[in-house]
Design a protein around this nucleic acid. Structure first.
Length: 572
DNA sequence: GCCGTTTTCGGCCCGACTGTTTTCAGTCG
């Protein structure tokens, strides 16, 4: 699958052309193509083979040719051409806040600056202030930008940002006179990582609200404190902005600050083509204000059905809304259980009884205890002898804790040769079998794919856990032919997991969408190793929603009886 | 470079802020 490679190349072409001062519209065309390719649910090679490149939005004659050239020859002439006389490091200067293409080109041409170190030195020596259009203030800004890029520039996982924001919001509701208050931005869209956090509120006394915000506990640094906007660095180094907006434009401001940028641009194009205009202050026709108090106004006035924030990435949701075909997304309340948790029997910290009790508190109908299998020594894999005792304990808990069904399960290791880490006789006795790769990450794509396909084809296996093996903060997944995995999973009826642990979120949103389109069943499991990690279910729900997933193909929305009936039709 | 219920040519999102300016260019979200 070359989607990502191509996306990166077009992104770079866009950067270089922008630096060279090419038409901003051409630059944007490359960037749009890059984004669309990145989000594509289909394999670009297949689209090319079937002659459908031009049907991709944002791909016209020129870009289609370039994609074809790259897929056929492994090279793209245009890319080779534009980057020929441009040092790679130079383009990285564009990543410094305050350094745009014009300034970068200026310092490159006049001072021969080619990288961040050169730039830093030149600023310290005060050599930038003599250039036309630059001054001492600009030098200061650039220095701050360099510092910012080095220190921060890092996105934090949704699972870290979400609890933080919940605390900030609760604190403000308690201490300040706020009416409505709601987080916007990528956090509201539930993107898997978040850059900074925007919170929107309405209230009569902006100054007091901002004062309360900047003096709340957990504030490490205050960057700005005005009447309508406050900006802080919270513990953990993440920037949080609070904006106080007028009541009558709360909806349009929420819409605007939620983004994504691509979604908003597309929306504004539609507004413009109908003689209207959208901004954070409202939706207008000429001088006439048509709406803005409620977010729904913006969409309904444009003739669109409401678009849930998780879909707002310009991945086809606007077209769907025009046709009234926004899918019914899974809701948190529809989740009836957790299908992957660990207990003390392997590397978890909770007893089975504790897990069952907590599941009941959460109004679940079931919870599946899926400890590691025997050969995963480093994770306390459960031996065959212990498994017998564990099954007895589960039976006991089921007798004692009523109102929730504790399912006997395992997260059986798919060994490097593709066999499973427990004999089939044991797997058959369990309620639910989750299988996963934990070793041999470096194996070639073909081999890993074959291991997973073998597991999919084993009738005892119900779910494949964290199918790609990626870790958000530290590890790319193993090489895997996901297309093949999806097509086999659709055939065998085996479900693929959306692992909701905050650092995994695997499958990812786009991959969920692909899987669902191909008829694959999905399952959310928190992979919780601690009782206080069960809340991460909502992260899994967020990924599912971002992947356009509805309740139909999602096991966790099924009531216990239906789930058991399905499990019965399978081995194990 | 893309795209078409005004268009196959002539458009291409919107507003704010900053710093260097004397009416605006560059950058950002």
């Amino acid at each position: 699958m070359k989607n990502r490679e191509l996306s990166e190349i077009f992104e770079k072409i866009g950067d270089i052309l922008e630096f060279k001062g090419d038409s901003s519209f051409r630059v944007n065309a490359y960037r749009k193509a890059a984004r669309v390719l990145q989000d594509l649910t289909e394999d670009i090679e297949i689209i090319h083979q079937e002659g459908r490149l031009r049907s991709i939005p944002g791909v016209g004659e020129g870009i289609a040719k370039k994609i074809a050239e790259y897929l056929e020859t492994g090279k793209m002439t245009k890319y080779e051409e534009v980057r020929k006389d441009i040092p790679d490091d130079l383009i990285r200067l564009l990543g410094i806040p305050g350094m745009g293409p014009k300034t970068t080109a200026l310092v490159y041409k006049k001072l021969g600056i080619e990288n961040i170190e050169d730039l830093e030195k030149a600023v310290q020596e005060g050599r930038l202030r003599d250039l036309p259009g630059l001054g001492a203030k600009k030098e200061e800004n650039i220095l701050r930008g360099i510092k910012l890029l080095r220190e921060a520039g890092k996105r934090i996982p949704l699972g870290v940002a979400l609890p933080l924001v919940e605390r900030v919001v609760a604190d403000l509701q308690e201490r300040a006179q706020v009416n409505q208050i709601y987080p916007a931005g990528s956090l509201r869209r539930r993107k898997e990582t978040v850059g900074d956090i925007d919170i929107l509120t309405t209230g009569t006394d902006g100054g007091r609200i901002i004062e309360a915000f900047t003096s709340s506990p957990g504030v490490r640094d205050v960057l700005a404190r005005g009447e309508t906007k406050g900006s802080i660095i919270a513990e953990g180094g993440i920037q949080v902005d609070l904006r106080v907006v007028p009541q009558n434009s709360y909806g349009s401001a929420l819409q605007y600050f939620t983004g994504s940028k691509a979604h908003n641009i597309h929306l504004r194009e539609i507004a413009k083509s109908r003689g209207m205009k959208i901004s954070e202050y409202g939706i207008f026709r000429g001088e006439e204000r048509l709406g803005g108090e409620r977010e729904e106004d913006i969409y309904s006035i444009l003739g669109l059905s409401y678009i849930p924030p998780e879909l707002r990435e310009d991945r086809g949701e606007i077209e769907a809304a025009q046709e009234g075909k926004i899918p019914q997304l899974v809701e948190g309340e529809q989740i009836k259980g957790d299908l992957h948790v660990h207990s003390r029997w392997s590397d978890g910290t909770a007893t089975i009884r504790e897990l069952a009790l907590r599941a009941r508190e959460m109004d679940y109908e079931y919870i599946a205890i899926c400890d590691h299998s025997q050969s995963l020594k480093f994770a306390g894999g459960v031996s065959l002898e212990d498994m017998a005792k564990k099954l007895e304990e589960i039976e006991r808990v089921n007798r004692e804790v009523e109102g929730v069904r504790t399912l006997s399960g395992t997260e059986v290791d798919i060994k490097t040769d593709g066999s499973l880490d427990y004999p089939d006789e044991l797997l058959e006795r369990l309620d639910l079998v989750v299988a996963a790769v934990h070793t041999g990450f470096k194996q070639p794509e073909e081999l890993i794919t074959r291991r997973i396909v073998a597991a999919l084809e084993n009738p005892n296996v119900d779910i494949i856990a964290h199918p790609t093996g990626r870790l958000i903060s530290s590890r790319e997944g193993y090489s895997l032919d996901l297309g093949e995995v999806f097509s086999v999973a659709a055939e065998t009826g085996t479900a693929l997991e959306i692992n909701a642990y905050y650092d995994r979120l695997d499958l990812s949103d786009v991959n969920c969408r692909r899987a669902q389109e191909q008829g694959v069943k999905l399952s959310i499991g928190t992979d919780a190793h601690h009782i206080d990690q069960l809340w991460m279910m909502k992260l899994g729900v967020a990924v599912a929603r971002r992947g356009w997933v509805g309740p139909a193909q999602l096991l966790n929305t099924w009531p216990l009886e239906r789930l058991l009936a399905w499990l019965k039709t399978r081995g194990g």
